[in-house]
């Protein structure tokens, strides 16, 4: 099928998953495709159940609890490989072991932790300390891994791939701001994806026209601690244990949402000048907003 007739129907499925409001906009032209959409939504719930750190039954929670796990499934191995590549291509800034710092940083409070507390946690951070061999992983005691910066983006890609594999070629997947185009509108027109302004989060400051690939945004503005006029954003540098500053958000457009998400996180962590430099080098379309 090379084209979809004009009377194919745009359906919007709204649901909540991975702690975020999610929306799938998709043009369906056959009754059976409704089942494809249902299965695609199911896919998001399945990934959430598998990798959520809030669910004690998730594979991730078990890995963190047991320390040593053998017989990991292909998908988990592939996610760990991805995290490894991201770590090594970001000079250690993209690190899925950073979550331990949540013990020190509480962004619901209005106080910052002591240097001593941060320093006491630093030995438990560092992807290079995780031991991996084939389908086995050893997470040293006190350390934790967290797919928070990967799985939602991966789910957006997986949903789009699922639709494409079932010949549904026109739509947009939005999992809490992690966006992936299935394909343009049937007319060929791209989707208009708004980039929010940190100061007025409800208004878009820029629009990316999206026909393919994904857009992900890393923001430092949603949660922060303000002490003596200094703003401490929630994005933490795994090398220092302290929030990064200088950039309020980075949105990246890449071939996949997962790569867009990783690039936007690294861009944010690198700070305004090095971040821009790194993103320019990477060769992706991006919008970087300084503080």
């Amino acid at each position: 099928m090379s084209s979809v007739k004009k009377d194919s129907l745009l359906k919007v499925f709204s649901f909540k998953a991975m702690g975020s409001p999610c929306k799938i906009h998709v043009y369906l032209s056959r009754q059976q495709e409704l089942h494809v959409a249902q299965a695609a939504i199911q896919l998001v719930h399945q990934l959430e159940a598998k990798y959520s750190r809030y669910q004690s039954t998730s594979i991730l929670s078990k890995m963190n609890k047991d320390g040593e796990t053998t017989g990991l499934d292909n998908e988990t191995i592939a996610l760990l490989n991805y995290a490894d590549i991201a770590f090594h291509n970001s000079d250690g800034l993209f690190d899925i072991t950073t979550g331990v710092l949540r013990k020190a940083w509480n962004f619901k409070s209005q106080s910052i932790p002591t240097h001593e507390l941060i320093e006491s946690l630093m030995p438990y951070i560092g992807w290079q300390k995780i031991i991996r061999e084939g389908a086995s992983i050893i997470i040293p005691k006190g350390m934790q891994i967290d797919f928070g910066g990967i799985v939602k983006e991966y789910a957006a890609d997986a949903v789009a791939s699922y639709f494409l594999a079932h010949n549904v070629c026109h739509g947009l997947v939005d999992l809490g701001g992690d966006i992936r185009a299935i394909g343009p509108h049937p007319s060929g027109k791209p989707w208009q994806v708004g980039i929010r302004n940190p100061c007025t989060p409800k208004a878009a400051i820029a629009k990316i026209e999206l026909s393919s690939g994904g857009v992900a945004t890393s923001g430092n503005y949603e949660r922060f601690i303000s002490v003596n006029g200094h703003r401490y954003g929630h994005v933490l540098n795994p090398l220092t244990g302290w929030p990064v500053s200088g950039v309020s958000s980075v949105s990246v457009h890449a071939d996949t949402c997962i790569v867009a998400g990783t690039a936007s996180t690294i861009g944010l962590l690198k700070g305004p000048s090095e971040g821009k430099h790194w993103l320019n080098d990477l060769g992706v379309e991006y919008v970087l907003q300084e503080e």
Binding site: A78, N89, A254, V259
Partner: peptide
């Protein structure tokens, strides 16, 4: 770097449905 990330992303089973 982008090639490495993309190759690694494309190895994810969800992207190979």
């Amino acid at each position: 770097m982008l090639a490495a990330l993309t190759t690694s992303a494309l190895a994810l089973p969800g992207l190979n449905v």
